[in-house]
């Protein structure tokens, strides 16, 4: 399983990648905003996207909408990990087709729980 981690802060990318490694996900790649993430996703080979919301260039919500609008990536599970915690934004992400929404700061247990839930669903 190849995972793309998108966040404009390198420390957060590192933290998310470390946590994913702990959960035995070893095939990890990263990008620092939607603009650099999208060409990677479009080129293919990724199974799961973990993205922040507030990033320069192209935000996480724009990336999510782009992923859903493109037939090749439309079904990719997307987990949003963000400091944005306004109700209207969570609803916007849900309407755009996000598969999980985690607010920062988060714990390793929360990340595991949401990922397990996403893959239990896509398997069933």
């Amino acid at each position: 399983m190849k995972i793309l981690v998108v966040d404009d802060f390198s420390t957060m990318r590192r933290i998310v990648k470390n946590l994913l490694r702990e959960l035995d996900f070893t095939n990890l790649d990263e990008a620092d905003d939607g603009q650099t993430a999208w060409p990677k996703l479009k080129a293919g080979g990724y199974d799961f996207l973990v993205t922040d919301w507030n990033m320069p260039g192209m935000t996480g919500i724009e990336l999510l909408k782009t992923v859903r609008a493109n037939p090749e990536t439309a079904n990719m599970p997307v987990l949003m990990v963000t400091a944005e915690q306004k109700r209207e934004q969570i609803i916007e992400a849900a309407q755009a087709g996000v598969n999980g929404y985690i607010i920062k700061p988060f714990t390793a247990a929360t990340l595991k729980e949401k990922i397990d839930k996403i893959f239990a669903r896509s398997a069933g």
Binding site: W53, N54, T59, A83, E84, Q85, K86, R87, E88, Q89, I90, I91, A94, Y101, I102, I103, K104, F106, T110
Partner: peptide, 29 residues
């Protein structure tokens, strides 16, 4: 406008305060 992290003492209307509230909101949807 993106509000970013919730800062203690700065009240922003319409925000959730925990992951549990996010989960509740999403399950209601």
């Amino acid at each position: 406008v993106l509000e970013g992290p919730v800062v203690p003492g700065v009240v922003v209307e319409g925000t959730v305060n925990s992951q549990d509230e996010v989960d509740d909101l999403l399950s209601s949807l």
